[in-house]
Simulated scan of single mutants.
Amino acid sequence: MKKRIVLYKRLSEGLLAQLQAQVEVTWVDMAKPDGLARLRDALPGAHGLLGASLRLDSALLDLAPQLEVVASVSVGVDNYDINDLHRRGVMLTNTPDVLTETTADTGFALLLATARRVVELAGWVRDGHWQASLGPAHFGTDVHGKRLGIVGMGRIGEALARRGAAGFGMQVLYHSQRPKPQVEARYGARYCTLDALLGEADYVCLTVPLSASTEGLIGARELGLMKPEAILVNIARGRVVDEAALIKALRARRIRGAGLDVFVQEPLAQDSPLLQLDNVVATPHIGSATHETREAMARCAVDNLLAALSGQRPPNLVTPGYI
């Protein structure tokens, strides 16, 4: 008898067929008003879950006593209580590696767009305001040759370092839990304390995972350490930044601008003060949002889930304690 899984993220026809050949699939559309109720109804008897962007709390997990694996179509796992899953003997998997380059592209796109005021000035042209040559009031700031500060030197941080150093001749500064000699050798990067990085960098890019130690990492004090001409780019998680403090700093032009792909509340409310500021480029959490990368992430999640349900160690196991 096939094992049962609950799918709450749409898959391509090919991947869905691969799943259905090996397991019984119950599809739940979480975008519908009854999505959560249907998920709750589907959890009893489920051996696997596959999806993303759903906070699996203990009340939901209590409904799935036969659950063996949760295959998250994401690299971040802050939606899950890993200790609780481990206690229940449930494996959690994620999809690292396949989104590294695409997310780094997004980070650098935000950096460039904010520095050169691309979104603001494209709208200015669209609204018919380009009647003469531009003056200093519409100038941006250079990216090449500047100091790139990366907070969190994991896979995505290193991909950003490569783009900055090799593509734009930037001096790379970084802060992470420990120095990374290989990164320093490859890109001429320099390890700094967080305070030193904030004080020196022209561009501060956040790539850290969300955890108890990184929530609110960048607040009023840290923003105050940044240079007035510096730009903040966040492709990590919204709660890594104190959003109220950031809005205050941007309004006061305490820093030059911010390129943001993540927010405390998502989707971002239409009345958010961030959307009223001309020195903010805001995108709707598109870090990995390309056709190629999302398909690769889904394929990785399917492989993880099927491996776990067949008694093998999944390739991208997050929960400890499994051999």
Score class of each variant (00 low, 15 high):
residue 193 T to M: 05
residue 209 P to M: 00
residue 160 L to E: 06
residue 164 G to E: 04
residue 167 G to D: 13
residue 195 D to K: 08
residue 188 G to L: 01
residue 149 G to R: 03
residue 183 V to T: 13
residue 194 L to G: 06
residue 200 E to I: 11
residue 193 T to Y: 03
residue 209 P to I: 00
residue 150 I to P: 02
residue 189 A to P: 09
residue 142 D to I: 01
residue 184 E to L: 08
residue 183 V to F: 02
residue 185 A to S: 11
residue 168 F to N: 10
residue 157 G to F: 00
residue 185 A to H: 11
residue 154 G to D: 05
residue 191 Y to M: 04
residue 202 D to G: 06
residue 202 D to V: 01
residue 160 L to W: 02
residue 167 G to S: 12
residue 209 P to G: 13
residue 157 G to K: 02
residue 169 G to E: 13
residue 161 A to S: 09
residue 153 M to A: 15
residue 145 G to W: 05
residue 211 S to P: 07
residue 150 I to A: 00
residue 165 A to Q: 06
residue 163 R to H: 11
residue 157 G to N: 03
residue 189 A to D: 02
residue 170 M to E: 15
residue 159 A to I: 10
residue 163 R to Y: 08
residue 187 Y to K: 04
residue 144 H to T: 15
residue 196 A to I: 07
residue 176 S to G: 14
residue 188 G to K: 01
residue 166 A to V: 15
residue 201 A to R: 05
residue 191 Y to A: 15
residue 187 Y to S: 06
residue 156 I to K: 03
residue 172 V to Q: 01
residue 167 G to H: 15
residue 189 A to M: 06
residue 185 A to F: 03
residue 199 G to D: 07
residue 161 A to Q: 06
residue 172 V to K: 02
residue 208 V to M: 08
residue 159 A to G: 09
residue 209 P to V: 03
residue 155 R to G: 10
residue 202 D to F: 12
residue 204 V to Y: 05
residue 199 G to C: 12
residue 152 G to S: 09
residue 145 G to V: 07
residue 144 H to G: 14
residue 177 Q to M: 15
residue 166 A to M: 10
residue 181 P to F: 09
residue 169 G to Y: 06
residue 146 K to E: 12
residue 194 L to V: 11
residue 155 R to E: 13
residue 146 K to W: 11
residue 156 I to A: 00
residue 164 G to A: 07
residue 211 S to V: 11
residue 174 Y to N: 05
residue 154 G to C: 08
residue 172 V to G: 01
residue 156 I to P: 01
residue 177 Q to V: 14
residue 190 R to A: 12
residue 167 G to V: 02
residue 201 A to W: 10
residue 163 R to C: 10
residue 165 A to G: 03
residue 156 I to W: 10
residue 156 I to Y: 07
residue 207 T to Y: 04
residue 182 Q to T: 15
residue 150 I to H: 00
residue 161 A to F: 05
residue 173 L to R: 09
residue 164 G to C: 11
residue 191 Y to V: 03
residue 166 A to S: 15
residue 199 G to W: 07
residue 201 A to K: 02
residue 151 V to K: 14
residue 201 A to H: 11
residue 175 H to Y: 08
residue 142 D to P: 13
residue 199 G to Q: 13
residue 187 Y to P: 04
residue 192 C to A: 12
residue 153 M to P: 07
residue 179 P to V: 11
residue 188 G to T: 02
residue 209 P to E: 04
residue 157 G to M: 04
residue 144 H to F: 12
residue 148 L to R: 01
residue 170 M to P: 10
residue 149 G to S: 09
residue 151 V to P: 14
